[in-house]
């Protein structure tokens, strides 16, 4: 059953997305000790990505349409905004990147689109987190020096790539669960 782009969002879609947001929040909490062990700003999402991407993949597979990632990550951004708007900022940047992939592909019904959206999402979290960190550092001579070092392409590019790959791992795990859910008759999804 193909979900048409024009079809309206239903209550069950909002609820499913909200529960996936809960999953994203739980993974953020579970991986927090690992994330805080990564010393580079933005790159901390490498620890979160393999697990968070499971929920993003599941949400995209079930909701299929453009807006699915925005609904999941946008709500998380709103909630985490009460902790700090910097977290909201990098989440918004990431969801825009993923939604761009969805927009180009006409939704998230395809597995490849979901893979690319995940990679874009986590590369963007890394880059925007990096940008926020560097902005925080700037303004003093030492901070400027550290920021200059951190913005070197040979530091930045590998971090973004690893983050995207971590998202890809999560996508692969997410698709495994999508398969299991289908086998158990618990999820009507596109594959």
């Amino acid at each position: 059953m193909e979900k048409s782009m024009a079809q309206r969002w239903q209550l069950k879609d909002y609820v499913f997305a909200a529960l996936m947001t809960v999953g994203l929040a739980v993974t953020a909490k579970v991986t927090q000790p690992f994330a805080s062990a990564i010393p580079l700003p933005g790159a901390t999402t490498i620890a979160w990505a393999p697990f968070a991407a499971i929920f993003l993949t599941l949400g995209m597979a079930r909701l299929r349409r453009s807006g699915a990632v925005a609904l999941m990550a946008g709500v998380l951004a709103l909630i985490l905004g009460i902790i700090s708007w910097t977290i909201s900022a990098f989440l918004v940047a990431a969801l825009l990147a993923a939604e761009l992939v969805g927009l180009v592909s006409g939704g998230f019904a395809g597995k490849t689109t979901r893979l690319l959206a995940n990679m874009a999402f986590f590369a963007a979290t890394c880059l925007s987190g990096w940008f926020i960190g560097v902005t925080f550092l700037r303004g003093t001579p030492v901070g400027d020096l550290a920021a200059q070092w951190l913005t070197q392409p040979w530091v930045l590019a590998p971090a973004a790539l690893v983050s995207a790959l971590a998202g890809a791992v999560g996508w692969w795990l997410g698709e495994q669960i999508v398969f299991q859910l289908q086998r158990a008759g618990k999820l009507d999804v596109a594959r």
Partner: peptide, 20 residues
């Protein structure tokens, strides 16, 4: 729908944590 999503996320975060 955003208010609903927020409410549900808040309500079910502890429930899902407990499940975990």
């Amino acid at each position: 729908f955003l208010v609903l999503s927020l409410m549900l996320t808040w309500r079910f975060l502890p429930v899902i944590q407990q499940e975990a």
